[in-house]
Design a protein around this nucleic acid. Structure first.
Length: 300
RNA sequence: GGCGUCGUAGCUCAGUUGGUAGAGCAGAGGACUGAAAAUCCUUGUGUCACUGGUUCAAUUCCAGUCGAUGCCA
């Protein structure tokens, strides 16, 4: 029996992942899974650089525009969804390509993620309110009582880390640290990871240019049409919230555009920080398709 | 052409009553287990425009040069 292989393509935003993934999928005659936590949403298109219709038609894509911004979704569900789909795909294909820049989501598929509970919306709301009313010190105090072990290792200035740990402790009655196994789950398929990167200046030029193209193709209209939903998590996204800052009058539209570029560059940097520590990733320039193919052939 | 103001980090600027300098932004590095395009942490040495002069010591005072800018002609 031939072994099944998932080819994973990662890299910073705007580096050119989509084009390479499509080439690979065509080369191997397989389908593409997106691991981009914002391209999931059907309402978000221009601002999240969704692949064009031509690109989407060139190869069968999954997990693009399959959700609504109103749907609750998270990494764990994504992991489950991907594993289910791969089961099906591997019945007919030996290879599948997963492409995306959301590091946590990629890792959830490749290494697995602990089965922790979803918080109830009420509990989450309550914790957020506590943070907003009483500040981070009060969250720290609450976590210290619930889970001193995690308290001693967590970044105590990051409210979201504290919030999540409290959520898990309160819903399970157990400590977050005891439930976090952090084990690598065995997958019934091989994984080959390739990373795309290029020199910083070229990447940043591409990012800046892409924002300009987004504006030319109707970014403002798309973003403004979702204005009333700006508080949804899916819209807490580079390219959207800056424009909402301008619409609400806090900054000029020119400033918003500059901010989108700056924040996209920072996002790219964070992505690189995440992926750089993964020793399984083999890095290439986005133009080196032949080299990438050679590498994949030698590994498969 | 005359008079004035300015020339300090990639950018905007502060400052040194003479003892070689510091903020914001940009940038860089890092963390990351159900909101992850999220959230959080760390990080500032630069011919103080150039050439001379005064001085133990000049980025700081003086002169000249160059550049920018304003007003007057």
């Amino acid at each position: 029996m031939q072994s099944k292989t998932l080819i994973v393509v990662v890299g910073p935003t705007a580096v050119g992942k989509t084009a390479v993934a499509i080439q690979i999928a065509q080369q191997f005659g397989c389908e593409i899974l997106s691991a981009d936590s914002r391209q999931f949403y059907k309402e978000l298109n221009i601002g999240v650089a969704r692949p064009s219709l031509n690109e989407l038609n060139a190869v069968k894509h999954h997990f693009i525009a399959h959700l609504s911004i109103f749907d609750p979704y998270n990494v764990y569900k994504f992991e489950q969804d991907v594993l289910l789909l791969l089961d099906k795909l591997f019945e007919k294909d030996n290879i599948a390509v997963m492409v995306g820049g959301s590091g946590l989501y990629v890792d959830a598929v490749c290494k697995g993620i602990d089965d922790l509970p979803d918080p109830s919306p009420e509990l989450r709301k309550q914790i957020i309110e506590q943070y907003e009313m009483e500040g981070i010190e009060s969250l720290k105090k609450r976590l210290k009582e619930l889970d001193p072990e995690y308290y001693s290792i967590v970044n105590l200035t990051n409210p979201k880390r504290l919030q999540r740990a409290i959520e898990v402790c309160e819903t399970t009655g157990q400590t977050y640290s005891s439930l976090r196994k952090n084990m690598t789950h065995k997958r019934p398929f091989r994984i080959i990871k390739i990373g795309l990167n290029q020199d910083r200046e070229t990447l940043y030029n591409r990012i800046n240019l892409r924002v300009d193209v987004m504006l030319e193709t109707g970014l403002l209209k798309e973003v403004e049409s979702l204005y009333e939903y700006r508080y949804l998590n899916a819209l807490n996204t580079v390219g959207y919230r800056e424009i909402y800052n301008a619409v609400s009058g806090d900054i000029s539209i020119e400033q918003a555009i500059t901010d989108i570029k700056t924040n996209s560059r920072r996002y790219a940097k964070r992505q690189l920080t995440w992926f750089k520590r993964d020793q399984e990733i083999k890095w290439f320039a986005p133009t080196e398709f032949d080299l990438i193919c050679q590498y994949l052939q030698s590994e498969i």
